[in-house]
């Protein structure tokens, strides 16, 4: 009996090893990265955020975001443009990011009341994006080379990948575990753990929709497991491949909203 159990277990282990070897972890994370951040070469969406702090108080944000991939063939540098609609005190504030894989991002903020284009030092991508529980990196993507990846499990519907930072001193977590949908390759859940294995932060996709032929997470939540706050994020009015010219991502657009591409 014992022998039988051991053999069965061994067999199932071997089988799972075999099926794991059918796809490498690099393929999984490359596809997941593409699905999460690089579908189509450009896109637009209106984003609503609801930020709930630990005391349960709520704040909201609404903005329209434009994205363009600079290298159309590989998942590399991208440009983002954001126009804030709400709350009222940030209305018409614009924000631009030139995301680089090989160096720090370039960021600009335009304050309409002062007509001021401010350049922002982007030394840390793991700081709150517009006061939410999402970090810059969660919105624009964390470089795949920043972590070592290990395929933990090949489930029926999901791949489970553990990622360990190459520079642990630069981040607040010890590792994170991502569950990736096998069909769409969208990361549906990401849990961040500290060195004691305690979960400190978690992302979860709440709704996936197919838009223009692309699967996309349209509603998600990021939870701060330590303080208890969370931010929900909803995407609407999504459009892919809207052939945005690169000139949209310049100082001109910061000062003068390129409405025709945003609407």
């Amino acid at each position: 009996m014992k022998l039988f159990t051991t053999s069965t277990l061994l067999a199932s282990c071997l089988m799972s090893t075999m099926s794991v070897s059918a796809i490498t972890v690099d393929e999984v994370i490359n596809k997941a990265n593409h699905a999460a951040y690089y579908q189509a070469n450009s896109g637009r969406a209106q984003v609503d955020m609801m930020i709930t702090d630990k005391a349960g108080r709520k704040n909201k944000r609404r903005f329209t975001i434009l994205r363009k991939d600079i290298d159309q063939k590989s998942d590399a540098d991208q440009k983002f443009y954001i126009l804030f609609h709400k709350p009222a005190d940030v209305k018409n504030t614009t924000f631009m990011v030139w995301k680089h894989l090989s160096k720090a991002d370039d960021r600009w903020l335009y304050l309409p009341a002062l007509d001021l284009v401010k350049r922002i030092a982007a030394s840390d991508n793991r700081t709150s994006f517009v006061g939410s529980h999402f970090y810059y990196e969660d919105v624009s993507g964390r470089g795949l080379k920043a972590d070592k990846h290990q395929l933990l499990k090949d489930e029926k519907q999901r791949y489970v990948v553990k990622s360990t930072p190459k520079k642990p001193e630069s981040v607040e977590f010890a590792y994170y575990v991502t569950q990736i949908d096998k069909n769409s390759f969208l990361p549906l859940k990401t849990q961040y753990f500290d060195s004691k294995g305690k979960e400190i932060r978690a992302f979860e996709a709440l709704k996936v929709e197919k838009i223009d032929g692309y699967n996309m997470v349209t509603h998600s939540v990021m939870k701060d497991k330590i303080s208890g706050g969370n931010t929900q994020m909803k995407y609407r009015k999504i459009q892919f491949n809207n052939s945005l010219p690169e000139q949209v991502f310049t100082e001109r657009s910061l000062r003068k909203t390129p409405t025709k591409y945003l609407k």
Partner: peptide, 22 residues
């Protein structure tokens, strides 16, 4: 096991988290 214990509810598909708050 360690990882699955941590990555709890891995089978819990797109959670039915209440949307009511929103």
């Amino acid at each position: 096991n360690t990882v699955f214990a941590e990555a709890s509810n891995s089978e819990d598909n797109l959670s039915s988290q209440s949307n009511d708050e929103w």
